[in-house]
Design a protein around this nucleic acid. Structure first.
Lengths: 341, 341
DNA sequence: TTGAAAGCGCTACCAC
DNA sequence: GTGGTAGCGCTTTCAA
């Protein structure tokens, strides 16, 4: 049996009450000498307060709940690990710990969201990978659980989110190419509902601004996900066009790497024959040959910001809900140049 | 106020007891019809059991505690993210969630280890980055909290650990070079107490087996950590030897990359002039020029295995303690070749 | 099958 | 400053 307050009190010859005061640092209400004795006993017996009991009386838990998306190898993904790092650094700085709710299917993720109501946490962070189950979100609102959604814009009056402005990211990429003189720009888009729209809008806006007509042939929307194979295959489609693009904007670095591969096979040089631009700035981007120009998504900052917002709501629930965007930035390396001739 | 068992019972016109039975799936003790009514009410009111209260009665929490090392950006490190992925996949598969105890200093890590006793978790996983505070470990033993240490060998009769056999890793690396014909092999070692010893032993063993005398000059033990700068500087020391080595074994891929850099500056080609071998197999290793031959450390598997062991102890505390090693493997790419001439 | 009552370990409030 | 008492929401006896 674990040591309880009672055990400590008995051994120290004081009441439970007194021990509780000592444990909670309310030293002004306990005689110095008593306090020391109690502390000695605590040390000696290795007493640690029972968290469940403490929670039951309605205290803050000093822990944040994190809902993971249904994903194997979750922490091995660049965006997940960066967000988690940001979250844990920011939470840790305020003395908060993290409860990660794990799931292997979307169904489970919905259940986990409900679990945020189960009293172990002071607030929740919901990490999205593009297919968020918003199923139980309204329950959270109803019960006034403070929570923030990361990486997905859920436009509800009582819901907070922080997301990366992917429209702006695509815009930056295309703008960069246009500035270099490109007029025919291929675009390989991903497959996640919200993300692909935003990315496409950015592509279109940059084109519009430059007075370039959008040629639908230049836009490939893939269904396989943000992996090398996707880029490899999409590159083919673009290259086989009657008038192939002089540059390719992708929606992930992995896709760009796939494009590289196909280009090399076809004897095309990057960036002399064709420019390529990635998205994400995962660590391997700068080690490509040539080093990949790409759009960095500040996922770490996203995590930090989400915690900041959440903390505000934990401290005071009566706040206007927050819908915030973080702007990605262009990382200029060596995969883009002037169009040939 | 959150919905409680009582609220549900009242609304459904039954006793708390009955609702509890339904919530816990003990359907054989409740009339079919009653059960349905109760379930409807639960759904309708959005009732979620209070976890704290449940815990207080001594139930399993179905959550595992994870003690993080004192590290900023923790999840951005290859080994941490891989271990975390392994842990979360394995825990999730058994319906377990994870409580991450965050810390920014060693002192805090010790406190967190004590927190494993606070009743929110069924067992603990302690992740080491080489400087484990074993301070409160004995308290865990005394209170019979099931726990497993990852990535550090703590030889205590009641402590479980899973670690990577780093001795074997170094051995593999050196052996590989010897098999290629190298006789003079530089070794850049890291700075973490336990790890450097193991790595050095592996280096020595391979040399011994081949009947090569160990020249202390060839061994550089760095203090700066496993980063590029370290490799860059250490390479210099090795190169300036009266008789420089024909190959270099490193203790991290990052160090190897630093070595690459210095070698290139000096006009030395890898592997024609000098062979280099990394350690870790982080994702960028294969994108180096030339692709880095390295020792893969299966951290994901380490996480999975740790959870397996922990689960055994949770289910039955009377087990012989487990001290287990996982063997790294050689990933043969293009940075090693025969010695010049 | 259902209901009443005790108790998990703690905090908070009350007198002393 | 200190000690008693109630009660947080649930599970688990034990009776009905």
């Amino acid at each position: 049996m674990r040591i309880t307050l009672n055990d400590v009190a008995k051994r120290a010859g004081v009441s439970r009450n007194t021990v509780s005061l000592v444990v909670n640092g309310k030293y002004d209400k306990v005689k110095e000498e008593t306090r020391e004795r109690v502390e000695d006993v605590i040390q000696e017996m290795g007493y640690v307060p029972n968290f469940a009991a403490r929670q039951l009386t309605g205290k803050r838990t000093k822990t944040l709940g994190v809902i993971l998306p249904p994903l194997r190898n979750a922490f091995s993904f660049y965006n997940m690990s960066e967000m988690s790092s940001g979250i844990s650094d920011a939470a840790g700085a305020q003395g908060y710990n993290l409860m990660f709710f794990v799931c292997n299917e979307r169904f489970k993720q919905g259940l986990n969201i409900r679990l945020l109501k189960d009293s172990r946490i002071d607030g929740g962070l919901i990490l999205d990978n593009g297919r968020l189950v918003i199923h139980n979100i309204e329950e959270l609102e109803r019960d006034e659980i403070p929570f923030v959604i990361l990486n997905y814009r859920l436009e509800r009056p009582k819901t907070n989110y922080v997301a990366i402005d992917k429209e702006h990211g695509s815009y930056l990429a295309v703008k960069h190419l246009i500035d270099l003189g490109h007029r025919r720009i291929g675009f390989i888009n991903g497959s996640l509902p919200q993300h692909i729209e935003e990315r496409f809008y950015g592509y279109r806006r940059a084109l519009d601004e430059a007075g370039i007509n959008l040629d639908p042939e230049c836009v490939v929307t893939v269904t396989e996900g943000w992996v090398e194979k996707t880029g490899y295959e999409a590159a083919d489609m673009l290259l086989e066009l009657p008038q192939p693009p002089t540059s390719i904007v992708t929606s992930s670095d992995l896709i760009a790497i796939g494009v590289y591969k196909r280009l090399k096979e076809k004897g095309l040089r990057v960036p002399e024959d064709i420019s390529v631009i990635g998205y994400d700035d995962i660590p391997i981007a700068r080690y490509q040959d040539p080093p990949l120009t790409t759009i960095r998504q500040p996922y770490y900052d996203l995590g930090v910001k989400a915690v900041d917002i959440l903390m505000r709501f934990i401290k005071n629930r009566d706040q206007k809900s927050v819908h915030e965007s973080i702007k990605p930035i262009l990382v200029n390396r060596a995969s883009c140049s002037y169009p040939p001739r």
